[in-house]
């Protein structure tokens, strides 16, 4: 009861803060300076039709590298904690609905995830969302079986290789064009083609592989620690 009251009180306080903040907010009629520059010269600068990916991977590539590092340390910590403190029982057998679905859907989901990753510079998506979609397919596979995943060197090799690729692509830009993660060490090509936009597709691929393998590693360590009841 006390927990509920405290929770509701926190929600009400947050609501009050939010209302005071957004009270005098008006929708801006024009883009801000940097936004305008992105929308005007983004396609020429990067060759990427999807400007969100252009910002995430090319203009703010260093931030994305930092984000990947954050995800890496988070997943390492989760795996470490779950290995040190193995509590709970092993996985229970799934219901027939889940195991039937887990037999059919994952291949389609993985295909969709790969599409999101490889078309990041053309349509909404990119490395991070695509990697998460691929990982959710692996999650479904794990939910549909009652065996504990074995030790896998494959996942960690993929993860390390993807991280290394990201870093090396960054250094390539530094040596070839004098700028870390310079996008146009590869030709920009014609915008809208699948092979275009410099190194954006390669970086998307690396991020996608890294996110998918890291999240799958978290799931399998939960599974090994007997997470599901």
């Amino acid at each position: 009861m006390i927990r509920t009251i405290v929770g509701l009180a926190i929600v009400l306080i947050l609501m009050a803060i939010l209302i005071t903040v957004v009270d005098d907010y008006t929708v801006p009629s024009a883009l801000s300076g940097v936004g305008e520059s992105y929308t005007e010269t983004g396609v020429e600068d990067t060759g990427s039709v999807n400007l969100v990916t252009a910002v995430v991977v090319a203009y703010r590539g260093l931030d994305t590298l930092g984000e990947v590092v954050v995800l890496f340390s988070a997943s390492t910590a989760v795996v470490l904690i779950l290995t040190l403190i193995p509590i709970g029982s092993g996985p229970t057998p799934p219901s027939s609905i889940v195991s039937f679905t887990a037999g059919i859907l994952p291949s389609a989901i993985i295909l969709f995830g790969i599409y999101i990753i490889t078309h990041g510079h053309l349509s909404p998506g990119g490395g991070f969302p695509g990697g998460a979609v691929v990982a959710s397919a692996f999650l479904l596979v794990m939910l549909g079986s009652n065996t504990v995943p074995g030790k896998s060197k494959f996942l960690s090799s993929i993860e390390s290789l993807a991280g290394l690729t990201f870093g090396l692509l960054g250094f390539w830009g530094m040596f070839a064009a004098g700028q870390f993660l310079n996008n146009l060490v590869l030709p920009a090509g014609s915008p809208g083609r699948i092979i275009s936009a410099g190194i954006i597709p390669l970086i998307s691929l690396a991020i996608g592989a890294k996110v998918a393998s890291e999240l799958s590693g978290i799931f399998s360590s939960y599974r090994k620690a007997g997470g599901e009841k």
Binding site: G88, G125, F128, A135
Partner: peptide, 21 residues
């Protein structure tokens, strides 16, 4: 896309597994 896969699918399952733990 990110919210649907991470927020709705993955974190829900992680919470469920945590509840089991």
């Amino acid at each position: 896309i990110t919210e649907a896969s991470i927020g709705a699918a993955i974190s829900t399952v992680i919470f469920l597994w945590g509840r089991g733990k």
